[in-house]
Amino acid sequence: MRAPIGPFDPARPASGCLAELTRPVAEAVLGWRGAMPAEQILYVDTDPEIADTAAFVAHYGQELLGQSANCVVVAAKRGGETSFAACLVPSAGRVDVNGAVRRHLGARKVSFAPMATAVELTGMEYGGITPVGLPADWPLLVDPAVADMPYVLVGSGRRRGKIIAPGKLFAELPGAELVDGLSL
């Protein structure tokens, strides 16, 4: 099947590509219980050498910048404790870590989690972190603009490959909370 966005052919249901996904992403796809059918979560194969947003859209098409989202892991500190969360924002924007994220999490300080920490805690590859399959106890802060997109391209858990799904599906993920002003 042809992907609903981008020049990707074939696009396959992620449930049929479990070997291409990291363990936490595959488990989340298999265990999906949202209102939208799991078959709406598609997998497309992409070049791992150009997984980062700028290189990706330069290669696959600039229009994807407005149809994709980035998932970043943040570390929130309060009272000597550190907790983690993920933020999902349109790729054309950036996360308002010091404003919206800090206020929403009630933290004294929020920063991007170090790469090694993000990789270890998610079980995913850096440059491919996705909101699908994040640790169950983490908040997932979602910019409403992502949930409003007809389809969204995000990481697959690995640098190779991407997931495409309706924007509304991301608001149904475990721990998901829509946060106005999340993206600058």
Rank of each mutant, 00 (worst) to 15 (best):
G6W: 06
F8L: 11
R12L: 14
P13F: 14
S15A: 15
S15P: 01
A19D: 15
A19L: 11
A19N: 08
L21N: 10
T22P: 14
P24K: 03
V25K: 07
L30I: 02
G31K: 00
G31H: 04
A35H: 13
M36G: 12
A38S: 14
E39R: 01
Q40W: 02
I41N: 02
I41H: 00
L42Y: 06
Y43N: 04
Y43C: 07
D45F: 01
D47K: 00
P48W: 09
A54L: 05
Y60C: 06
G61S: 04
E63N: 07
L65R: 09
G66K: 07
S68E: 03
V73E: 11
A75S: 14
A75K: 13
A76C: 12
K77R: 15
G79L: 09
T82Y: 11
S83D: 09
A86Y: 05
C87V: 08
C87N: 07
L88Y: 00
L88W: 00
V89T: 15
P90Y: 06
P90A: 06
S91V: 04
A92G: 14
A92F: 00
G93W: 04
R94N: 01
R94M: 09
V95E: 04
A100N: 11
R102H: 08
R102L: 14
R103L: 01
R103T: 11
H104S: 06
L105P: 04
L105H: 06
L105Y: 05
F112G: 00
A113G: 07
T117P: 09
T117V: 15
L121N: 02
L121C: 11
M124G: 05
G128F: 04
G128D: 07
I129K: 02
I129W: 03
P131V: 10
V132M: 08
G133Y: 11
P135H: 08
W138M: 12
P139M: 12
V142L: 13
V142R: 00
D143E: 12
V146W: 02
M149V: 03
P150A: 04
Y151E: 06
V152N: 14
S156A: 15
G157R: 10
G157S: 11
R158I: 04
G161K: 02
I164Q: 12
I164A: 12
P174E: 03
G181W: 10
L182V: 14
L182M: 08
S183L: 14
